[in-house]
């Protein structure tokens, strides 16, 4: 009679727990294990965490929240958040950036957008989809921005465009390099045409920074698509990518629906982009810090005039 009651709906959560205990299974927290989407092995979550959020078995790069990525990359305690919406308590520019969140709350009055923003804030614990600021990498001062996939799929609206623009303007003024990490589903459609305008706006700031003879290095992470790829993700002096990252203009589903064919294996992946000549290199997460220290070092003569 072991199947008795199997299809009966449990009355409450306690009852489910009881059932498990009786069956002799120990209680395991939901987040203690993760399954690698690539090699499909069950991994102990702490092992993945200790391995820079990379699968210890097959090297699959798990997504990383922006704040954690900065922690993994820059010199300890060196990150000073600026311009990103949420850096809010400072004066001047920082304060203006914080005000940008309010201004950008719902610029075209898109129905349901405020609720989506609140939900994203709760889920990610961040105010918006990007963190910007000043940090040191191997002792070298650099401006940095890191996008956050947890926040509405990393979609770019006015607040993100404004923060990144301010960062580039600040970097140009202070003669500092910029290191950026992108992850994005594209422009944020809830802000309509104003999101699209951010592509041109940031491009203008990147160009001015570039004309000052300063370095902009960008690391594309999984996935980087749409308006972000078609602007500042592809405008770096040096463009790097994480292994296996999906990088493209149109999303794979849109392409399949347009051409009515299945896409080949590995299409729009970092490895193919490298082969086609659109990125400079693929750098494993473990080697990114060393890579950037070397890169920044090679360009630092210009910085300290």
């Amino acid at each position: 009679m072991m199947y008795q009651g199997l299809f009966r709906k449990p009355k409450n959560a306690l009852e489910i727990r009881d059932g498990e205990m009786e069956a002799g299974q120990p209680y395991i927290a939901d987040d203690a294990y993760v399954k690698c989407p690539k090699c499909r092995k069950m991994l102990y979550a702490a092992d993945v965490r200790d391995n820079l959020e990379v699968c210890p078995e097959c090297g699959h790069h798990f997504p990383v929240a922006a704040r954690r990525r900065i922690e993994l990359l820059v010199d300890p305690q060196s990150f000073q958040e600026m311009f990103s919406p949420g850096a809010g308590n400072g004066e001047g520019r920082e304060k203006r950036a914080a005000e940008a969140i309010e201004a950008a709350r719902n610029p075209i009055g898109f129905p349901g957008y405020e609720e989506k923003l609140s939900a994203a804030r709760q889920k990610s614990g961040e105010q918006e989809g990007v963190l910007c600021g000043l940090a040191r990498i191997g002792g070298l001062p650099t401006c940095i921005f890191v996008m956050n996939m947890d926040f509405m799929m990393g979609s770019m609206g006015t607040a993100i465009g404004e923060a990144i623009t301010q960062l580039f303007e600040f970097a140009a003024e202070k003669r500092l390099p910029v290191v950026g990490y992108t992850v994005s589903g594209g422009a944020r459609m809830q802000e309509g045409i104003l999101s699209l305008m951010q592509m041109a706006k940031v491009s203008g700031a990147v160009k001015r920074h570039s004309d000052e003879g300063l370095l902009y290095a960008v690391v594309l992470t999984d996935p980087t698509t749409g308006g972000v790829t078609a602007s500042f993700a592809m405008q770096g002096d040096v463009i790097l990518a994480e292994p296996g990252a999906l990088i493209g203009f149109a999303g794979p589903r849109v392409i399949e629906q347009t051409i009515l064919q299945k896409l080949p294996e590995g299409f729009q992946r970092a490895e193919l982009l490298l082969k086609k000549g659109f990125i400079d290199d693929i750098v494993h997460r473990r080697k990114q810090r060393t890579y950037l220290i070397n890169l920044l070092g090679l360009h630092s003569d210009q910085i300290q005039i």
Binding site: E99, A100, A103, G161, E162, L194, M197, Q198, K201, G204
Partner: peptide, 8 residues
């Protein structure tokens, strides 16, 4: 283009 999304 700079003006789009500037808080003030």
């Amino acid at each position: 283009f700079r003006k789009f999304g500037r808080p003030d």
